[in-house]
Design a protein around this nucleic acid. Structure first.
Lengths: 358, 358
DNA sequence: AACGCTTCTGCAAGCGCTTGCAGCATCGTA
DNA sequence: TACGATGCTGCAAGCGCTTGCAGAAGCGTT
């Protein structure tokens, strides 16, 4: 691998001149610059980033900490971040925290000296600790607000509220919510929104679950939805929704004629032009992109400069998809040919109290 | 940040001894070792990886080049690779090639000096070029075979064949295949399998598409499937399958009673215990994991040692899911209440010739 | 008691790049 | 013509770690 010295020899200058020619072309005379450049090309020169990092402290790496990768939400954000990073000539290191605060802390510690900044997707660490990291290497947070750090969040509640409003407008009075994984922060926020809306007269939300956000879970809760006497169902995410819809189809229940459905959080089809399902569409790639862009600003910026503004990105909702006016005639949960009949269930599911989420 | 020198001062030894205590504990006397260790702990010592890399050439990074991230197949592989990398104390850098040979080459070139090895997911570069990279930094390939390199592939064709056999066994004679993206290597391989099986007497495959592997595409091809007169449909992947099934449900077509369906390539639900859809399940995480494990071997190994064996991983198929005996009575494609009637269509779709895939 | 070995430690020379400083032309100005 | 200012370049000192080499003990032999 050709080094600075090799180029210097060819060009007949010193290594320092070559270095300057590469990183601050303005500092060398035009003719020298030209000479060095052709020499570099001839030698096939590639600067050794590790050596550069040793003196400058800049590694050209960004680290992104995510709870997991194989989840459309995270994967989308990673993709956005990666694209932005590459666009500014940096590489993205992915660290998976798996929801463990220890692993997160370990990654933060290990990578601190190897990267120029961090993108933290839903970090678990306390605000104080994050600020401490930020003092050493710039930090941008996604999907959580940390005072003092720039963060990018998404207005899922707003999207949910729009769906909710539409349901009310259509005349629905009972809505099922297929909850997400137990203990999920996102899930909690959503239920909070629902519970706020639940205060309206004549409206009630049944929470089914919690359940892992999987296709199979949506499918296996189809009967519960039917039994609940609800005329509409909201699913935690698109996977759950698809499972539900699939199973409903097998039971002869039509969407949206017999049951209105929507997903609270989606990256699979909300933005697709011809999608027949309504869902709160989350601009996941944007989250990643913006986070990295903000990081870029922070990395270049002088210590005292104002930090990039935090933003809440709005969601997209297509209200005309799988939402329709309620139908009181309901189909029983039996898998057979579906004779229509009134649904009258004692409904053992709990009502969503407005105060149950802290 | 505490350095070697700081620890040395505290422990009352030289920096070299500290270095050795950290990286080759066997080389220092037990008592010294102990002293150094407590000193290091006290000082909060963290070795600077860039400095280490400068002398050793080992960076502790692995690079993984993928066509894209937000695709369940790739995301799953990345997740597996990431886990394996972290398990062996390395970090994973993700580079997205986006299907561009130039970007791939650029990433390879840029990262060559910054990583200890490469995992290449479906690389575009020629075998010769890949071998050349391999001479500098170890390379492991996923989902493509490159002579001279260790690679991990997946037996999707085998899984497809099993589904196909089952369909034949059930008495199907006309099968629709919702093809993947135009020009896709995977898609070609699959169609090849189908065309091989298509030689059997009394069996025919209709290819619909090509189409992008999206939910909406599956949905919008539902009518084409119904019109084709086929009694079973294979989809390029699970997204397409779900779209198809969703739209079928709206038309009152039951799965699998009215139509058998399966996905050729799936990471979403094939492995889930209660999944109602049959699909060729691909062990995506395993691919990534094994690739990194092989890379580990290569990195540690002496230049002359035999390279880790390539392997083809087998797929999983649940045959009892959405496959059933064919029903000749078919539903027309009109979106209405679906009166049953015979399907007799001139079928303008082309038959799959056995030689059409190169 | 002397010798050769083994074990442990420190010295110093890098790894390949950046950068403060000083030297040397060159140029403009008085 | 002389002077300072300016522009460009080279020298050399690192950045923080690793490692070959050699010296210093400590040990077992003969």
């Amino acid at each position: 691998m050709a080094g600075l010295e090799d180029v210097a020899r060819i060009a007949g200058v010193s290594a320092s001149t070559v270095s300057r020619a590469m990183s601050r072309p303005g500092m060398v005379a035009p003719t020298t610059l030209e000479r060095v450049r052709t020499a570099a090309e001839q030698a096939g020169f590639r600067a050794n980033p590790a050596a550069r990092a040793l003196t400058t402290g800049r590694t050209g790496f960004l680290a992104m900490l995510v709870p997991s990768i194989d989840n459309p939400f995270y994967a989308g954000s990673i993709a956005g971040a990666q694209a932005a990073a590459e666009a500014s000539g940096r590489w993205l290191i992915i660290a998976v925290t798996d929801g463990s605060a220890e692993r997160e802390a370990a990654a933060l510690r290990d990578l601190e000296s190897q990267v120029d900044g961090f993108v933290l997707l839903m970090p678990l660490a306390g605000a104080g600790e994050l600020k401490r990291v930020h003092e050493r290497k710039p930090v941008v947070v996604i999907n959580r607000k940390v005072p003092g750090l720039t963060s990018f969040t998404v207005d899922t509640p707003g999207g949910l509220a729009r769906i909710y409003d539409r349901l009310v407008e259509l005349g629905h009075t009972r809505v099922a919510y297929l909850a997400g994984p137990p203990g999920s922060w996102m899930d909690r926020r959503r239920r909070q929104v629902l519970s706020e809306h639940s205060d309206r007269p004549g409206l009630s939300v049944r929470v089914l679950g919690p359940m892992p956000p999987e296709f199979s879970e949506g499918a296996s809760h189809a009967d519960a939805v039917l039994d609940s006497g609800c005329t509409a169902a909201l699913a935690y995410n698109s996977s759950v929704l698809l499972g539900l819809v699939f199973e409903l189809g097998r039971r002869g229940v039509r969407v949206p004629d017999d049951l209105s459905v929507a997903a609270a959080d989606d990256m699979a089809f909300a933005d697709l032009p011809g999608s027949p399902l309504t869902a709160v569409g989350v601009p996941v790639a944007d989250l990643g992109r913006r986070a990295v862009a903000a990081l870029d600003d922070l990395i270049g910026a002088a210590p005292g400069s104002p930090r990039p503004a935090s933003r809440m990105l709005s969601t997209t909702v297509r209200l005309t998809g799988s939402l329709a006016a309620p139908r009181l005639r309901r189909v029983r949960s039996a898998g057979s040919t579906a004779p229509e009949q009134e649904a009258h269930h004692p409904s053992s599911q709990r009502e969503l109290g407005s105060g149950e989420d802290a």
